[in-house]
Structures are given as C-alpha cells and as structure tokens.
Amino acid sequence: MSAVMLYLLLGTVLAVAGTVRMLLVRDLLARLIAMNVVGIGSLVILLALGARGGADDATDPVLSALVITGLVITVAFTGFGAVLIRRIEGPRPSDRDGGDRG
C-alpha cells in the first residue's frame, strides 16, 4: 500500500511541477517538455490508482487501457506541437534565429 501511496505522491508532484513550469516558462520547447512531464505525472497517478483498485493484487485492466490511450494521445499532441514550434520559430523575414532559446 505504501508503494502505491509513493507512486501517487510522485505522480502528483510531477504533474504539479510540470504545470507550474508550463505556466511560467516562456520558451515554447520547454513548455512542450513541461507538458509531457505533466502527462507522465498524470499517467503515473493512473497506474498507481490501478494498482490500488485491484482487490487481489491484479491491476485494473480498464485503467491500464486508459493509460495507454493517454500515452498515445499525448504523443500525438507532442508531435503536432513540435511541428508547430518548428514552424513558429522557423525562418521569418523580421526575426533572427536563437532569440530566446533556453
């Protein structure tokens, strides 16, 4: 049980830290990474919940399915976000490269 609690705590800390970072940082790429940290935190929470939910030590299959779907969707969003960032920070007549890269 304590391991589950540990994972729950870890997931929450990850998600909160990621969210704070996401809101504070201005660099787009860093934001995208922070978003992924939030995603991983949330999925850890879900996994922990799944481990807790099973009465006889088996993980909840429904929750595992949720985690996998969430993973896939986060990857899709990350990919699309990366494309957008490349476009936004790509060559622009008025802008020079590397202005605010962190």
Partner: peptide
C-alpha cells in the same frame, strides 16, 4: 485523472 479516479 478524474476519470481514472472514478474507475478506480
């Protein structure tokens, strides 16, 4: 996460 909580 909310949905997961409900499921669990």
């Amino acid at each position: 996460v909310g949905v997961g909580l409900i499921v669990s």
